[in-house]
Every structure is written in C-alpha cells, then in structure tokens.
C-alpha cells in the first residue's frame, strides 16, 4: 500500500520498542529487523504511540524545536513515509 500523507498514523502493534536515553530502538516482530531512532525521529516516534496526523506531529515539533511549520511538515512526511515502508506504522482505519 502506498503512503498517503493525508491519513492518520500510529505505531504498529507488531513491534517491541524501548527508549534508551534520547533514542528509541524498535524491533519489527514481523521480520526480526531492528531500527534506532534518534533526535527528532525519536520525538516523532513518541507522538506515534497515539494516532496522529502529519499536521498534529508537525505542530508538536514546532512547539518544541526551532523549526518552521512548513519545514517540520516536510520532515515529518519524509520520516513517516520511511517508517511506513519499514512497516513500523500503520494507517488508522
């Protein structure tokens, strides 16, 4: 399924994840592959523990970091597209 930036997204339930320091480690139970998310990606990952749209996540980032809303939205879109390709997030029906 292609990534649709207009949908609401949430972390997949077929994962094990843990935050260590300022990073998260995510293990995809479907294929046994694991990933490290640091800095802003970790902050986005925290948001994705609940269903979130790209706009909601971008708003959370702009409130916390010195980043323009447009740039935040582009960054979040790119990251969510990658997380989707890795099957770490799923669209909320």
């Amino acid at each position: 399924m292609e990534f649709d930036p207009t949908r609401t997204w949430v972390a997949s339930s077929r994962l094990a994840a843990s935050e260590i320091g300022n990073e998260s480690v995510v293990l995809n139970l479907a294929d046994g592959k694991y990933y490290g998310l640091n800095d802003m990606a970790n902050r986005v990952w925290r948001e994705l523990q609940q269903p979130r749209s790209i706009d909601q996540i971008a708003a959370a980032l702009t409130a916390e970091y010195e980043v323009a809303e447009d740039q935040a939205r582009r960054d979040v879109t790119q990251l969510l597209s990658e997380l989707h390709a890795l099957q770490l997030i799923v669209a909320v029906p």
Partner: peptide, 24 residues
Amino acid sequence: GAGIVRQMLESQFVLDPFDERELK
C-alpha cells in the same frame, strides 16, 4: 544509547528468531 541494544541482540542465544514471543 540505542547502539548497545544492537550489540546485545547480536550476542544472544535465540532458538526461533521468527517467533514473536522469543523475539520480545
């Protein structure tokens, strides 16, 4: 940081690396 976890996972004994319970 998270890099330790990668090293730890690579040092573990796992009977069934495709079993979700054991992976967890």
